Computed example of a mutant assay.
Amino acid sequence: MSSLCYWLLLLLVHFSRSTSRATAGKVSAFIVFGDSTVDTGNNNFIPTIAKANFPPYGRDFNGGVATGRFSNGRLVTDFISEAFGLPSTLPAYLDPSYTIDQLAKGVSFASGATGLDDLTAKFTSVIPLGQQLEYFEEYKARLEAAKGESVASEIIAEAVYIFSIGTNDFILNYFTLPVRPVQYTPAEYVGYLVSLAEAAARDAYHLGARKFGLCGLPPFGCLPLSRTRNHREPGECNEEYNQLAMRFNAELQDAVTKLNGDLAGVLVVYVDIYSVLSDIVANPSDYG
């Protein structure tokens, strides 16, 4: 099963057919927080070097246009939006060309190179997760002004929310900058990041969100940068990094269980990225 199909299957099953803990069979909008995996162009509108608005980015997008997506074409979240019967491309919140009526069906607040840890965002001058949540609060107010409080509340409650974030906290922060390694052991830093992810979900809940997907980390020890930095086995996956990703994912799953137990009327699911990308790395020919 491809990574895209896996995402679609998990989200559609949990959210479109949920009958017990969230509104059944109805998704009003698809709302996204995170990093470059889900940034549909917000970094185009902020002063940062972390941009994807030039070739070869976007070479397979409609018209071959680099939109600010860190991809050759659409992102997985674009395909998921389309699968929910929503727009086939998810707007970036900071793009002034979109109206609130267009944003009402879905929006990405994500920012490439950001992380759960504010220090990660500061390193490349991108949008921290806390600011993304502030934009979401602003978005909610804009919806209320445009559509009335009742309709806006319905959109917010029946939307699906995805958080895809965390890899940069290790790659661009912990294993690059000197600050966090002095303050935390690797295991402690994992716990710190998971606590931030849980807090962000709670903040979104208090703003009206009810249906969440929290994405785990990929095997980031197999990313090109990690392979390059692997001085013990040049060119190979860094298994120390992968072990941290697995530890993060295990603790995030515990946080998901806690959120489902603590918050009334919420449905939170864990989205497994690790096993899917591990299979792609191990069996690349199966994926073309």
Rank of each mutant, 00 (worst) to 15 (best):
N168Q: 07
C5V: 12
A29N: 09
R17C: 10
L116W: 01
Y6K: 14
T124K: 13
A145M: 01
F84R: 05
L86I: 06
A264H: 15
D35N: 14
Y135F: 15
S18D: 14
L8G: 02
V269A: 06
C222S: 14
A264G: 13
Q131M: 08
L277D: 02
F15Q: 00
A201Y: 07
P284T: 07
T124W: 12
S275A: 13
H231C: 10
G68K: 12
L94N: 04
P47A: 05
E134R: 13
A145W: 02
D118Q: 10
R202M: 10
P284C: 10
T167N: 03
K51N: 10
G63P: 13
V32A: 07
G221C: 04
Y139K: 09
T48L: 01
S150Q: 15
F175R: 11
N242K: 11
A204W: 01
R17A: 03
L277Q: 11
K26T: 11
L119P: 00
N72P: 12
F220V: 05
A92K: 03
F70Q: 11
V107Y: 06
N242Q: 11
K140M: 01
D169L: 06
L196K: 15
D279Q: 14
G115Y: 01
D95Y: 01
D272K: 02
S125L: 08
N173P: 12
D35W: 01
M246D: 08
S153Q: 13
P87Y: 05
Q131L: 09
A66Q: 11
G34P: 08
I155H: 07
L129T: 04
A50L: 02
F30C: 09
N249D: 09
V27Q: 08
P181V: 00
T99Q: 04
A121H: 03
R180A: 02
A121E: 03
G166Q: 08
K140C: 12
G216T: 06
R202H: 08
P47W: 07
L12Q: 13
N238R: 15
S278T: 15
Q243K: 15
I80S: 04
Y270A: 05
D35P: 08
G25L: 05
E233M: 14
V281G: 11
N43F: 04
D169N: 09
P128S: 00
V268E: 02
A152F: 05
F175E: 02
F45C: 04
F163I: 10
R17K: 10
D117Q: 03
P224I: 01
I31F: 04
A250D: 12
A245K: 06
A187F: 04
V38W: 07
A204R: 08
L196W: 03
T167I: 05
L8T: 01
V190N: 01
K147E: 02
D39F: 04
S28K: 13
I171H: 09
G106E: 06
G288D: 14
P128W: 09
I280Q: 15
A22N: 01
A113V: 03
A200S: 14
A66K: 11
A201E: 02
L259E: 06
Y135A: 04
N283D: 12
A255F: 01
V269S: 07
E239D: 15
S150K: 15
R69N: 08
T185N: 10
A66C: 11
N53L: 09
Q183K: 14
R247Y: 12
L133S: 03
D169W: 06
R74H: 14
E158C: 01
I49Y: 14
K51V: 11
F123P: 00
N230Y: 08
N72D: 15
D35T: 07
D60I: 09
A200H: 07
F136M: 08
R210Y: 07
R247F: 10
